[in-house]
Design a binder for these strands. Structure first.
Lengths: 112, 112
DNA sequence: TATAGTACTTCCCTAAAGGAAAGTGATAAA
DNA sequence: TTTATCACTTTCCTTTAGGGAAGTACTATA
C-alpha cells in the first residue's frame, strides 16, 4: 500500500535534466561563460570533445536560448558564441555540481 | 591563439555528472529520500520507469554508496532501500535543479 | 604556390540507454 | 485451487550518445 509522492520534486528535476543532460552541455556552457567565444577555442578548452559533438550541442544550446551564435561579416567571416542572460540562471546548478564533484573526488582519494 | 581555461570548473562538474547522469538516478534518489523503501513503491512513485531500469539503477546507486539495500529475513523476506548519509550531500544539487526546472516551466508557459 | 587556420560536415561505427512485454519463484490470501 | 503480491530477470528491439577519421569551403599567410 501507498507510496509517498515525490512528484513535486521529481517533475521539475526531470524538466531540468531534459535540458542539460549529457556529457557536454554544461561543460560547453561553462566554457562560453568563461569567455571562450570561438569554435576552436571552446573545442580546445574542453578535453576530449570532437568538433562533431561540439557543433551539435551548440545548436541544441542555441535552441534553448542559453547561448547566441553571432556572425560578424568581416573578411574573413567570424563566428562568435556568447552566453545569453538565461545561461546565468544555471549558475546555482553549476556551483552545486562543482562543489559536489570536488568533495566526491576527495572522498574517493581518501578511500583508496 | 589562446583560449581561456575553464578546467577548474569543468573537471569537477564532469565528475559529478559521471555519477548522477541519466534520466533516472536523481528521481530514484529523491524517491528513496522521500521515504519510499520498497521496490514497487519506488517504481510507482516515478512515472514511466520500468522494473528493469529501476533494478539496474538501484545497483548503480548502491555501488556509489548513495543508497543501501537491506534484506529483512522474515517470512516472507522483505527488501528495503534506504538512503545512505552520502545521499544527503546531493541535496544542494537537487534543490538547484528543482528550482531551475520550476522556473523553466514557467518561462515556457509564458512564451506559448 | 604551398601551408595553415576556421568552422564546421560527413561517414561509419560501437556502446550504452532505455522501452515493451513476458516470465519467475517465492509466499500469501480468498 | 486460483489469484495476487513482491522483487525482480530475461529477451528483444529501437534510439540516442558519442568516438574516429577524414573531408570541405573559405581565407590568410609565407
Amino acid at each position: 500500500m501507498g507510496y509517498l509522492s515525490c512528484l513535486d520534486t521529481v517533475k521539475p528535476v526531470r524538466d531540468a535534466i531534459d535540458v542539460i543532460s549529457g556529457k557536454w552541455k554544461l561543460p560547453i556552457i561553462i566554457s562560453v561563460m568563461t569567455g571562450n567565444e570561438r569554435f576552436t577555442d571552446i573545442q580546445e578548452s574542453i578535453p576530449g570533445i570532437t568538433p562533431k559533438v561540439l557543433a551539435k550541442e551548440l545548436k541544441d544550446l542555441e535552441q534553448h536560448q542559453l547561448i547566441k551564435r553571432i556572425v560578424i561579416d568581416d573578411y574573413p567571416v567570424k563566428i562568435l558564441y556568447k552566453p545569453e542572460p538565461y545561461a546565468d540562471t544555471l549558475t546555482p546548478i553549476i556551483d552545486a555540481l562543482k562543489g559536489w564533484g570536488l568533495k566526491h573526488r576527495e572522498r574517493i582519494f581518501n578511500k583508496e
